[in-house]
């Protein structure tokens, strides 16, 4: 008896195990062969990579015009931030990304990580805002592009998380008022779309303030995002808390732990571990929801793309390529997050 070679064995088991599976395989391969050449042709072979509007228009959409990215990348990536100062958001973003990746991959012990955050966050704001160390001040309404997306997503998540835990715990409180308050908050926020929360934060809120007093628009929008994200996140965490068997509470009590001690050391760690995938789900959706802040004239990644293209007669018709470029950025961000999440799950096991 000769053993079939492993590759043939694998092929047979996975792709040609029966008539239906064989047919599916053939159909998919045929579809790919039919579709791929055109795609590769458009994406690469016929594409124009130079920032030359004439060449792009000559190609008349037969090939992608990546020149639009080459020409407009500064304004797509940094939005309204003053052109000659754009090394600052670049540096700030790089710094923040390093800390995020280091945290996501758990490269440093917890204490070092906390310190890194404590340094990176203020550094980010000083670099972006300026007004110190001889840096020219740049108002937060002029921050834009990827740094703004990253800041809103990161801070939104970091601040929403503790709030969400408090709200989730509040819903298990023995005080009816606190319980009702937490429940009311969650129901209220879940009942409205994020876009209207942002609108309220940006336009209604200033009208309620006394004249001459104004809160920074970035701060108002961040507050809106945090309140919104926390409501969703708190339900996720509550789900985790509900999943912990009652025996764990009893066991903790039997060890002599008080109610809060039990929560801190026994219940919460298990509950949070159980909901890592759902929490990462929320993080990914916050990351993408930041694109909504365009409606309140903060130009993050998506907004700065339209700012870059809408008014330029030469490049206006190459929207698709611009969108593919920022889609790639979003995809890299989301993919990284799901990789981090998988890492956490493994570590938690």
């Amino acid at each position: 008896m000769t053993k079939p070679p492993p590759l043939r064995d694998w092929l047979r088991r996975n792709l040609f195990s029966d008539a239906l599976s064989s047919a599916t395989t053939v159909a998919l391969v045929a579809a790919a062969l039919w579709w791929l050449p055109g795609l590769v042709d458009w994406l690469l072979l016929q594409a124009v990579f130079r920032a030359d509007a004439g060449a792009c228009q000559a190609a008349s959409h037969a090939g992608a015009c990546w020149g639009v990215v080459a020409e407009k990348y500064r304004i797509i990536l940094f939005g309204r931030y003053p052109h000659e100062e754009q090394w600052r958001p670049l540096l700030a973003t790089a710094l923040l990304l390093v800390v995020i990746v280091a945290s996501g991959r758990r490269l440093l012990p917890l204490r070092m990580m906390t310190m890194a955050w404590a340094v990176a966050m203020p550094a980010f704001f000083i670099l972006m805002g300026g007004g110190r160390f001889g840096l020219q001040p740049v108002g937060s309404d002029q921050w834009g592009g990827f740094p703004l997306t990253l800041l809103l997503a990161t801070l939104g998540m970091l601040l929403a998380f503790p709030l969400a835990i408090l709200v989730a715990l509040g819903r298990f409180s023995s005080l009816p008022l606190l319980r009702g308050l937490c429940r009311g908050y969650v129901e209220l926020v879940r009942g409205v779309p994020l876009i209207s929360v942002l609108f309220l934060a940006s336009f209604l809120f200033p009208l309620l303030l006394p004249p001459g007093i104004s809160i920074d628009v970035l701060l108002r929008v961040l507050l809106g995002i945090v309140l919104f994200a926390a409501a969703y996140l708190s339900e996720t965490i509550r789900g985790g808390l509900l999943a912990i068997p009652a025996g764990q509470h009893d066991a903790a009590a039997a060890l002599g732990l008080g109610r809060w001690q039990a929560m801190r050391w026994i219940i919460l760690p298990q509950a949070l571990r159980a909901v890592v995938p759902s929490m990462m789900n929320s993080a990914v959706s916050i990351f993408k929801d930041t694109s909504l802040v365009t409606v309140v004239s903060l130009y993050e990644l998506t907004g700065s793309l339209s700012l870059a293209l809408a008014g330029d007669p030469e490049w206006r018709s190459f929207h698709l390529e611009g969108y593919l470029f920022i889609a790639l950025i979003y995809w890299i961000g989301c993919h990284a997050m799901s990789r981090f999440s998988r890492g956490f799950e493994h570590a938690a096991r």
Partner: peptide, 19 residues
């Protein structure tokens, strides 16, 4: 200004406004 109307108000590749 507008977020981009050709000839009236639009930002160029360096973020300078014209129109």
């Amino acid at each position: 200004v507008s977020t981009g109307v050709i000839g009236f108000s639009a930002a160029d590749s360096q973020g300078r406004w014209n129109g």
